[in-house]
Amino acid sequence: MKPELLNPVIHERVRLAAIAALAARGKLSFSELKEILEVTDGNLSVHTSVLEQNGFIKINKKFVGKKPRTTFVITDKGRKAFRNYLAQLERLLKESR
């Protein structure tokens, strides 16, 4: 298997970590995900937008009182893509040994 065949959307450090965290938890708030990934607000926004554009996560924005609250939810497509990515990594690892 060629490494180029790895999903380019997930094959980026922040996006990979984001989708891994969401695969484990299903749903996370903006601040929870930011704390887990240890990234800046801007960085997280950019990468989660890419994941959303590709249908891997849903971004829900609502107001709690007067404060905005953003939550990320992994989609079925996102779960499937993450599982495939993991399987491909394992295959590459076997081939490289």
């Binding site: 490494p3 970590a17 891994a20 490289s96």
Partner: peptide
């Protein structure tokens, strides 16, 4: 992508999942 890079990716996934359920 060499073996070290793949292992780094897998480590990142493991670390993140661990942190997200902490």
């Amino acid at each position: 992508m060499d073996q070290a890079q793949i292992e780094q990716d897998l480590q990142l996934i493991k670390r993140t999942i661990k942190a997200s359920v902490r």
